[in-house]
Amino acid sequence: MAAADDIILRVEHLTMRFGWLVAVDDLSFTARQGDITALIGPNGAGKTTVFNCITGFYRPSEGRIALRHGDAIAWEWLEPLTNGGERSVKRPAGALYLLERMPEYLVTQQARVARTFQNIRLFPGMTVLENLLVAQHNRLMLASGYTLFGVLGFPSYAAAERAAIERAKAWLDRVDLTARADDAAGDLPYGAQRRLEIARAMCTEPVLLCLDEPAAGLNPRESAELNELLLAIRDQQRISILLIEHDMSVVMEISDHVVVLDYGVKIADGAPAAIRDNPKVIAAYLGVPDKDVANVEAEVGL
């Protein structure tokens, strides 16, 4: 088990019900600072629902989702924070947030969690560069004096906008899209749209990046490039990544920690190598009922 000091995200007893359907049932896991944590499981296991809860799009039926910036605030603050009814504790050197109490835009704006979507949500009629500027909305809004300075043409806003364009350019270089900066995002090929979505999420300057199946639909070369990009984000920016992925080669290659869900329930949690050999995971992926797991274990020689 990881030392509590490294933990950035704690999901505790998360349950999400839609009517009678229990999409996520009493799920608990943690993600460590600077790790790539993968959330895997068969179709319909509730992975995206977990993402929607973490990023504030759904309000969980039960449970707690806590995120910590830096290590200035000890995790012991979690209980007083929960009981006190506040959303967050903030110190100059760090902060602790209860994500399930925050609307989705504040999860990104204050708790600095960014996300991408399974079926790519770009602004198709806006250019690639515009997409990246929209991601820097809150910073630019402040610089434009909530529009007032901007309309009046103050130079301070112009400087902020130049800086935002520079940041966008840096990310365009990293995802190899500089040449297409002035094209409509909807005109890009599929793989480029995936990369742009990641660059856009990174322009919000997150501490935790949540990627919903980033490798879906990519060819092997693009998939390899994606692995490099994610590892670079982890190692150079020191940003923690939470990843939903179906492509096992991606998961095994880059993740530091894997959580496996099946029918909304966690069935395994550990290092990639351990997960690969876990009979329950194999059974879940093969679609074998629980009672037959022992047989399967016998068959695979465990």
Binding site: T55, Y105, V107, Q109, R121, L122, N138
Partner: peptide, 9 residues
Amino acid sequence: IACRSLGIN
């Protein structure tokens, strides 16, 4: 939805 995911109120 993409707007909301980028921290826009």
